[in-house]
Design a protein around this nucleic acid. Structure first.
Length: 482
RNA sequence: GGCCCCAUAGUGAAGCGGUUAACACACCAGCCUUUCACGCUGGCGACGCGGGUUCGAAUCCCGCUGGGGUCACCA
């Protein structure tokens, strides 16, 4: 472990929305940085000019912001190490490429993609490991001049010295690799843009990143990167590679199989608090706990790289649902009401200026039956508009009693009762006694008449929210259906 | 295919040489209850296989099997 101040970074490439894998890595970075009093930086690794778009950078940022993981430095907030977009740092990369060239640690390669492809194919056919032969390493000055004069744009390759390189991964321990197995690799594309592995090393070093943390798919890259650190004579940062998140069928998470972008989870009605909580426990554990509902603050104080798991983890959406439901129940009703608004509006159930007072009352009633916010429209519908009268079910429930007479009494009671839940309950229960109906028949018929369903939130509170006139009107409609 | 990583119930995950192998989600049952939900109680269910090492292996070593990752002028 080094003693440098903690600086960690999340370095997404802006080739899409924010992936849940990125989100978890970002979360772990954030927790680690906050716990150590360090700095969390966002860097955009946009060296793939063919795939990058500005809108996808915005998508990544939006996703991470939604989660509430705020970075201290980044392209949108600035910082002492700016710029934070690799596409804006090419001078820096070129300077280091030139240095390596001057020291004879890197060289121009004029092989075309076609030649390289052919070379690879020949090697594969011969059952050899495909790797660059290093033939441009031997080019004479004259040959090099000729190629340049002919207008061929070279790539730059690093001379791989060979031998075993290794590093101590903070979550998996010592890992090593025989670099004789890899050929000289490209650090600068013929377009003049550095390759990911190169730009990453330069930036991580220059930005004083103390801990390089990322998904396990980067383990193989680490060896190439170490070679670059060594060629430049730089000290290595700490490395930590987190497990990979898998689909239920144990394949890597992909768009094809369920949601992979955090924007999709937002749209499905998951809370950022729940998402963070869930992600934290997917690949990390505090040890023994019976209660896995953790706030960000709790996570910050308990997180540790040492307790991160090295085996891959299946993304279990059922558990996410449970955590989400727990979090919804934790919120203040007014907060739930706020968060339901976009979902209700999307369902066309709300005016532009919603009655928040009423929504809050509804929230109190449905809060503990909500697993995701996108279930709100279904659970709210009978509060916001009149349901169909379930005539068939109603008459079945009332088969043994005089339904018309009874419901008429109900309407009469409701017409005069003080309009609050306790009073409604008291008077309605009193009427049940007078009527002599069984509890089941009485409440079920009321539920059907006023709410239009056998399944609903608590009856008296619901009646209160629906209002006197409306409740009576619904009962009258029910009577008429009999 | 080469190399690397990983391997405890369906899922997440404790465990670091001696435990009746935790806990959480899911599932099942019961309780609570005017429905649903919440909550509570209980239950089902695991150390991939084979060799070692050891008085003693889920724990250490080796092999196998399985899964994943990676072998680009992608990141």
């Amino acid at each position: 472990m080094n003693n440098k101040p903690v600086r960690v970074r999340i370095a997404p490439s802006p080739t899409g929305d924010a992936h849940v894998g990125h989100a978890r890595t970002a979360l772990y970075d954030y927790l680690f940085a906050r716990q150590k009093g360090g700095v969390f930086v966002l860097r955009i690794d946009d060296t793939d000019t063919a795939r990058n778009t500005l809108t996808s950078e915005e998508g990544v940022i939006r996703g991470l912001r939604w989660l509430g993981l705020n970075w201290d430095e980044g392209p949108d907030v600035g910082g002492d190490y700016a710029p934070y977009r690799q596409s804006e740092r090419s001078d820096t990369y070129h300077k280091h490429v030139d240095l390596l060239m001057q020291e004879g640690k890197a060289y121009h390669c004029f092989c075309t993609p076609e030649e390289l492809e052919a070379e690879r194919k020949a090697q594969t056919d011969a059952k050899e490991d495909p790797r660059y032969s290093g033939k441009c390493r031997m080019l004479s000055n004259q040959e090099r001049e000729d190629h340049l004069a002919a207008g061929r744009a070279p790539t730059v390759r690093l001379k791989v010295p060979g031998g075993v390189v290794g590093f101590n991964d903070l979550v998996r321990g010592w890992i090593e690799w025989d670099t004789n197995l890899m050929g000289d690799f490209i650090i600068l594309k013929s377009s003049g843009i550095p390759v990911y592995n190169f730009a990453t090393v330069i930036d991580d070093h220059l930005m004083d990143i103390s801990h390089v943390t990322r998904g396990a798919e980067h383990i193989a890259n680490t060896f190439s990167q170490i070679l670059i650190y060594q060629a430049l004579g730089w000290e290595l940062p700490e490395f930590a590679h987190f497990s990979i998140m898998l689909n239920e069928d144990r394949t890597k998470m992909s768009k094809r199989k369920g949601a992979t972008f955090i924007g999709q989870y937002a749209d499905m009605g998951y809370l950022p608090e729940a998402m963070l909580n869930f992600l934290a426990f997917l690949g990390w554990s505090p040890g023994t706990t019976e209660d896995e509902i953790y706030t960000l603050e709790q996570l910050i104080s308990e997180f540790s790289l040492e307790r991160c798991t090295s085996s891959n983890a299946v993304f279990d959406i059922k558990k996410l649902d449970w955590i989400n439901a727990k979090w919804i129940r934790r919120l203040a009703p007014a907060d739930v009401a706020e968060r339901m608004v976009p979902f209700l509006q999307r369902a066309g159930m709300l005016a532009n200026a919603p009655d928040m007072r009423k929504l809050e009352k509804i929230a109190i009633l449905i809060q503990e039956r909500l697993h995701r916010l996108d279930e709100a429209p279904a659970l709210c519908s009978f509060f916001l508009s009149d349901p169909e009268v379930p005539a068939q079910e109603l008459s079945e429930v009332l088969a043994q009693v005089d339904g018309k007479a009874g419901l008429t009494e109900v309407a009469r009671v409701l017409a005069t009762v003080d309009w609050d839940e306790p009073a409604i309950e008291e008077n309605l229960r009193g009427l049940q006694k007078d009527l002599g109906w069984s509890t089941k028949v009485y409440f079920m018929s009321l539920r059907l008449a006023v709410l239009g369903s056998k399944v609903s939130p608590p009856l008296f509170g619901s009646i209160e929210v629906i209002g006197r006139d409306n409740s009576i009107a619904r009962i009258n409609r029910a009577i008429n259906s009999l």
